[in-house]
Simulated assay, not measured.
Amino acid sequence: MKILVIHGPNLNLLGSREPHIYGIMTLDEINDMIIKKAKEIGVQVRIVHHNSEGGIIDEIQNARHWACGIVINAGAYTHYSIAIRDALCSVDLPAVEVHVSNTFSREKFRHKSVISPVVNGVIVGLGPYGYLYALDYLVNTAKVNTAKR
């Protein structure tokens, strides 16, 4: 099983960007956690980071050729990128939206996600552990779907 993990804009600044909101772990440390978890549960992950909307869309579109699922933290694009939403719809892959911070305890504009209605689930406010829970979900969903066949 292969899973694409997408980090959106400004997530490369984790560890130094507003640590009172996002914590002190760097993106590299989070990626190390994801890789370790993937090995534990027997999946392969491809982890990417893009500050640009087009880069994220390209990754989603390419995933349809090789991935079994997507974990996405679209950052600020979550709140207004219809293009990323449409890309997720177009690939017909299970996907989980992840946010390190609790978007509902922050500014009102962060309370709405245009991506949430088209993904299988949303994990917010659990820090970097949200990525790990998303991997577990995708693996368990794949096992259930395979067993039903």
Results as ranks from 00 to 15, higher is better:
residue 71 V to W: 00
residue 13 L to N: 06
residue 127 G to R: 04
residue 91 V to H: 08
residue 41 I to K: 04
residue 14 L to T: 00
residue 118 V to F: 14
residue 89 C to E: 14
residue 73 N to K: 08
residue 27 L to Q: 15
residue 11 L to P: 02
residue 47 I to S: 04
residue 90 S to A: 14
residue 48 V to F: 07
residue 62 N to C: 08
residue 141 T to C: 05
residue 143 K to H: 12
residue 131 Y to H: 11
residue 141 T to K: 13
residue 81 S to K: 09
residue 134 A to F: 02
residue 40 E to P: 01
residue 91 V to S: 12
residue 122 V to E: 02
residue 47 I to V: 15
residue 88 L to R: 11
residue 74 A to R: 00
residue 22 Y to V: 01
residue 140 N to T: 08
residue 130 G to F: 00
residue 85 R to D: 05
residue 39 K to D: 13
residue 32 D to E: 14
residue 119 V to C: 12
residue 115 I to M: 10
residue 61 Q to G: 06
residue 94 P to T: 12
residue 61 Q to M: 08
residue 22 Y to N: 01
residue 59 E to K: 10
residue 103 T to C: 09
residue 67 A to Y: 05
residue 121 G to P: 02
residue 128 P to G: 12
residue 93 L to I: 11
residue 29 E to L: 05
residue 104 F to L: 15
residue 52 S to Q: 08
residue 42 G to P: 02
residue 49 H to F: 11
residue 145 N to L: 15
residue 126 L to Q: 01
residue 16 S to W: 07
residue 114 V to G: 08
residue 138 L to W: 05
residue 83 A to P: 00
residue 54 G to P: 03
residue 113 S to Q: 05
residue 89 C to L: 15
residue 111 H to T: 03
residue 143 K to D: 06
residue 118 V to A: 10
residue 67 A to G: 04
residue 124 V to K: 11
residue 144 V to A: 12
residue 99 H to P: 00
residue 105 S to R: 05
residue 93 L to V: 11
residue 75 G to D: 01
residue 96 V to R: 02
residue 111 H to E: 04
residue 119 V to S: 13
residue 144 V to Y: 13
residue 80 Y to V: 07
residue 145 N to W: 07
residue 88 L to M: 14
residue 94 P to K: 13
residue 16 S to I: 14
residue 21 I to W: 01
residue 115 I to D: 02
residue 111 H to L: 04
residue 37 K to I: 04
residue 128 P to N: 08
residue 135 L to A: 05
residue 3 I to H: 01
residue 117 P to R: 10
residue 65 H to L: 15
residue 17 R to C: 03
residue 32 D to V: 05
residue 47 I to M: 10
residue 64 R to A: 15
residue 137 Y to Q: 04
residue 13 L to I: 09
residue 128 P to E: 12
residue 10 N to Y: 06
residue 55 G to A: 07
residue 146 T to C: 06
residue 142 A to C: 09
residue 41 I to S: 04
residue 95 A to P: 01
residue 103 T to E: 06
residue 57 I to Q: 11
residue 97 E to V: 03
residue 51 N to S: 09
residue 140 N to C: 06
